[in-house]
Lab assay of single mutants.
Amino acid sequence: TYVQALFDFDPQEDGELGFRRGDFIHVMDNSDPNWWKGACHGQTGMFPRNYVTPVN
């Protein structure tokens, strides 16, 4: 499953995934309602669910 970033996200903690608005992120785990795990630009980490939108 892929999502697209609605906003820039700069990691604040180790293990978070940084990205820029418009980036596509491969979702690896969406079991938590607020923080998902994904991959983008060769990196993996957690990111806030409300920063992304589903891609059809």
Rank of each mutant, 00 (worst) to 15 (best):
residue 1 T to K: 15
residue 1 T to E: 03
residue 2 Y to S: 07
residue 2 Y to F: 15
residue 3 V to D: 01
residue 3 V to W: 12
residue 4 Q to V: 06
residue 4 Q to S: 07
residue 4 Q to F: 05
residue 5 A to T: 01
residue 5 A to E: 00
residue 6 L to F: 03
residue 6 L to N: 08
residue 7 F to P: 00
residue 7 F to D: 08
residue 7 F to V: 15
residue 8 D to E: 04
residue 8 D to C: 04
residue 9 F to E: 03
residue 9 F to T: 05
residue 10 D to P: 05
residue 11 P to F: 02
residue 11 P to Q: 04
residue 11 P to N: 05
residue 11 P to D: 04
residue 11 P to L: 02
residue 13 E to L: 11
residue 13 E to M: 13
residue 14 D to Q: 06
residue 14 D to R: 10
residue 15 G to K: 12
residue 15 G to P: 03
residue 15 G to W: 12
residue 16 E to D: 11
residue 16 E to H: 15
residue 17 L to A: 02
residue 18 G to T: 11
residue 19 F to T: 01
residue 19 F to P: 01
residue 19 F to C: 03
residue 19 F to L: 06
residue 20 R to G: 07
residue 22 G to P: 02
residue 23 D to H: 03
residue 23 D to I: 00
residue 23 D to W: 05
residue 23 D to T: 05
residue 24 F to Y: 10
residue 24 F to E: 14
residue 25 I to D: 02
residue 25 I to W: 01
residue 25 I to E: 00
residue 26 H to A: 12
residue 27 V to L: 12
residue 27 V to C: 05
residue 28 M to Q: 11
residue 28 M to V: 14
residue 28 M to S: 10
residue 28 M to G: 03
residue 29 D to H: 04
residue 31 S to Q: 09
residue 32 D to I: 03
residue 34 N to R: 14
residue 34 N to S: 12
residue 36 W to I: 11
residue 36 W to A: 04
residue 37 K to G: 05
residue 38 G to Q: 00
residue 38 G to W: 00
residue 39 A to P: 00
residue 39 A to I: 07
residue 39 A to G: 12
residue 39 A to S: 15
residue 40 C to V: 12
residue 40 C to T: 07
residue 40 C to Y: 05
residue 41 H to L: 07
residue 42 G to K: 06
residue 42 G to R: 06
residue 42 G to N: 11
residue 42 G to V: 02
residue 43 Q to I: 14
residue 43 Q to W: 06
residue 43 Q to L: 12
residue 45 G to A: 01
residue 46 M to Y: 13
residue 47 F to C: 00
residue 47 F to Q: 01
residue 48 P to I: 03
residue 48 P to E: 03
residue 50 N to A: 10
residue 50 N to G: 09
residue 51 Y to H: 13
residue 51 Y to P: 01
residue 51 Y to K: 14
residue 51 Y to F: 10
residue 51 Y to R: 12
residue 52 V to W: 00
residue 52 V to I: 06
residue 53 T to G: 13
residue 53 T to I: 13
residue 54 P to G: 10
residue 54 P to Y: 13
residue 54 P to Q: 15
residue 54 P to C: 10
